[in-house]
């Protein structure tokens, strides 16, 4: 038998599983990095094989955001933890009006996790990053014993640059401002919920997970003076609006009839006893702007694929108690409060 010089048997992604050596810093880890991460993410910074990525900083203000992902199940209709971990951080960076540039990715893997699943996840991340035009330039891998993790957890950190003249921040909502959302609420949370073991119901609902910086770029180009942008993820729209109301020291008044919610999502929420206002989104944004900019922004949003169902859902008002209130479709009025407790654990 002849063995080729320098030959290493490739990782068996079909049958192999993560073991403790994949996080040991030894040869097995180097091989995993090389054959999986470097191959999938494929960029000059990773190819340099340093412990850090070194890049030129463009002019302007730098933005940085980080996000950990522990979603269960790892694969769901419309996405998986891989693309979600890219979209989550890209969106956090983009909500400042910035163009996201670079990401880091840190993996905590559980011993015994199928390497094939890891490959699917990493390739999904690579695809999402490519599509978003960001490079995953540095990373880390750790392995914990079986039973000490849940398959895979991914933390990503992103940096981007805010264009000149853009100042988007949670404390800039002013009485009279309009509140816009970019589309239907609750798709991600309900898609995940539909897979949970003890609920299993059939649905055609897919997660809305998507990178929103393209939509944000169009909006900022049309109206540089957007006051607030935020993506309503965990806790849903209700919690996001309460955060902004407190930050800006204002109240809000929503109209229930104008909230965009898919028929199937509304029905699933009804059946599960959930309120779509509190269910997570992963590809939607809330925009707060001066009233004279609302119409133009709505048009810009609606002409983008990720903002087709954009809607004006209410206005910012003066209120020393910072309540978010809603005129119900029924004709009464109520508070839309912070989320209490945990409605759906491990949603992202």
């Amino acid at each position: 038998m002849t063995i080729r010089k320098g030959y290493i048997r490739p990782i068996d992604f079909r049958h192999g599983r993560v073991d403790m050596t994949h996080g040991s810093g030894g040869r097995a880890m180097a091989q995993l990095v090389e054959e999986l991460f470097l191959a999938a993410f494929d960029n000059e910074w990773l190819a340099a094989r340093n412990d850090q990525a070194c890049f030129a900083v463009p002019a302007g203000r730098l933005v940085m955001a980080t996000d950990s992902h522990v979603v269960s199940p790892l694969f769901f209709p419309g996405g998986d933890i891989g693309c979600l971990s890219v979209h989550g951080t890209v969106n956090d960076v983009a909500m400042s009006g910035a163009k996201p540039l670079y990401l880091s990715a840190s993996f905590i893997l559980e011993e015994g996790f199928p390497l094939g699943d890891l490959k699917r996840i990493v390739e999904s991340m690579a695809g999402a990053a490519r599509e978003a035009g960001v490079a995953i330039v540095t990373g880390d891998t750790k392995v914990v014993e079986r039973g000490k993790g849940d398959g895979v957890f991914i933390t990503t950190t992103g940096v981007g640059v805010v264009p000149e003249g853009v100042n988007i921040s949670g404390e800039r909502a002013r009485p009279g401002d309009r509140i816009l959302v970019s589309g239907n609420l609750g798709d991600h949370g309900v898609a995940i919920m539909s897979l949970r073991e003890n609920l299993g119901f059939e649905s055609s609902i897919r997660s809305d997970t998507a990178a929103l910086h393209g939509l944000v770029a169009d909006m900022v180009r049309a109206v540089p003076d957007i006051h607030v942008l935020r993506d309503p993820t965990r806790g849903g729209l209700a919690t996001t609006l309460n955060e902004i109301a407190r930050q800006s020291g204002v109240g809000m008044l929503l109209r229930e009839d104008s909230l965009p919610v898919r028929q199937e999502v509304a029905a699933a929420c009804e059946f599960l006893g959930l309120d779509p206002l509190y269910v997570a989104n992963e590809g939607k944004l809330v925009c707060i702007c001066a009233p004279q900019h609302a119409q133009l922004l709505l048009e810009v949003m609606r002409s983008h694929a990720l903002g087709r169902d954009a809607a004006d859902i209410g206005e910012v008002v003066e209120d020393p108690h910072h309540f978010v209130q809603m005129e119900t479709g029924f004709g009464g009025r109520r508070i839309v409060d912070w989320l209490t407790g945990e409605q759906l654990p491990r949603i992202c």
Partner: peptide, 18 residues
């Protein structure tokens, strides 16, 4: 109490008339 807190407590403050 939870129902009043979550949905109706703005009524306890006169200035929140809108």
């Amino acid at each position: 109490c939870a129902a009043h807190y979550a949905y109706g407590r703005f009524r306890d403050f006169e200035e929140v008339g809108l």
